[in-house]
Design a protein around this nucleic acid. Structure first.
Lengths: 366, 366
DNA sequence: AATAAATACGAAAACGATTGCGAAATAATA
DNA sequence: TATTATTTCGCAATCGTTTTCGTATTTATT
């Protein structure tokens, strides 16, 4: 035992230990509470309390502990904490599509709020597949996430998996594509009104035959938007022809062909309301396969959160949801629910955030 | 004690317990290993071993245990397991931008592989902000994720935070925007070659003055792509004029103005190579603010993973990375590293996956 | 000065899983 | 039949926190 070695005797031991633990393949989360306590010649309980700013610990001790914790770069083990506190500081986000500006913006909004409160985001993509959705939900049944924010897949009609989740007591929030059967809070845009307005706009631009493109009749947004579309058609004294209500599928190429066939049929529409962005883009592709010109022969308006709607040819008239805000609102509500002790369950209500219509060339006669 | 009540005595107690635990605000992860064991009149260790298919347990017992576990819908607590096994079954993905098809596709690719192995994905967006990146990385220092896949922000030049992470032993993989200083595996596309080809294509289409748009000179992709561009310029016997190397910023509007100024300057380029998609779109916006016509007055090629490059006006000639594949390859490598015990560290190597150039109207004389 | 109250900390029990070790019960061997 | 293997399972420690309880010391009160 040399004098030199005794300056930081414990520190030296510590470094040795850390090197030993640091073999390849092992997670090395650095120093732990017990080691930190030993370094300070205090008990783990005291150190824990000091770091959590407990009133039972003197200011002096707190200072020492905090300083040493920083020096050794102590990071509490999140799993020990989760196990003990029965919460994970993690929120799961389940979406049907990742390559989609709307969902990406919503997630950005969620992250913006949750990050401020130390929450982490698990993100899952169902790919519009209800079986994948069920698997993901069953994975979340074990408490890995403290709460779930989701938009259901277009295939989802049986919602028993979501009911189970909700009954388990996992806070669950829907946005955009909601499940009205599950008694919780949902955030949507004013689907009915904005579609109504959008359709009316097409009518004002001279459209006589307007087709409605949708993904699936099961979807909450489809139902509401279809209703808005139909009411606007009827208000204009026109007939809502069911042959103009087109249900598309998940296959892009098939959709393009389907729409092309529609555009070449006898009953050809002169206007299109696409209930989702993807179908507007398919329409653009379909039009390229015909001799039709937009907006002269065909006008189109669509729900879309594309930042480059203005760069399309013709530039696309859009109904744009405040996606980032929707994400933020979902997150704010959840944070309230999760951080306040014994907070009541999420109210069974639908909160509407209005969309904004931006008129561009695709609906304005050349 | 009635005879009726004794048919499933423990089950009744169980249900009661579950209801009590299920107060609002509490995570209810359902039945627990101890409870499951009590139900089976076995010890927790036996049940655990049975569920993990240990050789020490008889086939008969295993069957009973599994059946009861399904009946009670037993879900092991992930945090207890993580704590014990020192692994989280979670992989963190850190990207600079969420509203970006390239990164979204990469994540889809990662998820496609990791999901098959029971891994979960934590996704973080740095918003091209190195300070946010540092915070996120420091959050990941505690072992919350078993590994990290990332693409650095355009601001990242000091990489000490990434070095610390790597030294901690957390498996780390870079893709696209890499850190050559950190000795680990990186996945990139053939940045040099594809930019070289792209530039040559512009030259072949008659461009005499080609500008190069970039986000930041610090970025690995910028350096490589700039090199490819410059070599192609020199190969053609032209000068690489530094005034045509435009460094853009994070503000979209400023970029548009910057590019517009360039397009209105005396030294106006007749071709543009945008090293990232965002800058190609800014160019389209900038052109709209001038009297120039594309492709006649200005041709443009850009790295881009937009699915609708063909719908722009003019349709955009692109260099497209195999984003989904890149994600898959990152994930495959990580899974190998994480599932094999005592696997050696990730090799310090750069793996190149070639891009594909798709020529469209934006580079072809009308 | 004797007692009560406040302060500051430690020991140990959780949280829920996995696993080394020991020990019955059964089967195989001498 | 006595001994040794083998099979099958339980006990208890462990992972790293937080927290309940207990206790020693100091300060305040009568």
């Amino acid at each position: 035992m040399s004098g030199r070695g005794r300056i930081f005797p414990n520190l030296c031991n510590l470094k040795l230990t850390r090197q030993i633990q640091n073999y390849p393949g092992a997670m090395n989360s650095g120093v732990n509470l017990k080691e930190l306590a030993a370094e300070l010649k205090l008990s783990p309980s005291t150190v824990s309390r000091a770091l959590n700013d407990s009133y039972e610990i003197s200011a002096e001790t707190k200072k020492k502990v905090i300083s040493m914790a920083e020096k050794l770069n102590y990071q509490p083990n999140p799993f020990a904490r989760s196990l003990r506190e029965n919460k994970s500081k993690t929120i799961a986000v389940v979406i049907p599509e990742r390559i989609n500006n709307f969902f990406a913006q919503v997630i950005d909004g969620i992250e913006h709020i949750t990050q401020q409160h130390g929450y982490h985001l698990l993100v899952y993509n169902t790919h519009e597949d209800v079986d994948k959705e069920k698997k993901i939900i069953s994975l979340l049944l074990n408490g890995r996430a403290d709460a779930i924010v989701m938009s259901v897949s277009s295939q989802t009609s049986d919602v028993s998996h979501l009911e189970r989740l909700h009954e388990r007591g996992v806070p669950l929030i829907f946005f955009d594509r909601i499940c009205s059967g599950i008694p919780t809070t949902k955030f949507i845009t004013n689907d009915y009104e904005s579609t109504f307005e959008g359709t009316r706009h097409l009518l004002q631009q001279g459209c006589k035959k307007i087709a409605f493109l949708m993904l699936s009749k099961e979807l909450s947004i489809t139902k509401e938007r279809l209703r808005g579309y139909q009411d606007a058609i009827r208000e204009a004294g026109l007939e809502s022809e069911s042959c103009l209500n087109i249900t598309c599928c998940q296959n892009e190429e098939k959709n393009i062909e389907l729409i092309r066939d529609l555009l070449l049929s006898e009953n050809r529409p002169d206007g299109i309301l696409a209930s989702v962005e993807k179908l507007a883009l398919a329409t653009y592709q379909a039009v390229k396969r015909t001799n039709l010109r937009m907006p002269d022969d065909l006008k189109i308006i669509s729900f879309s959160n594309m930042n480059i709607a203005g760069l399309l040819n013709p530039s696309l008239t859009t109904i744009t949801q405040p996606a980032f805000t929707i994400g933020e609102e979902c997150a704010k509500l959840l944070i309230r629910k999760l951080t306040r002790p014994k907070q009541p369950d999420l109210l069974n209500q639908v909160i509407t955030v209005p969309s904004k219509i931006t008129i561009r060339s695709s609906t304005v006669a050349g």
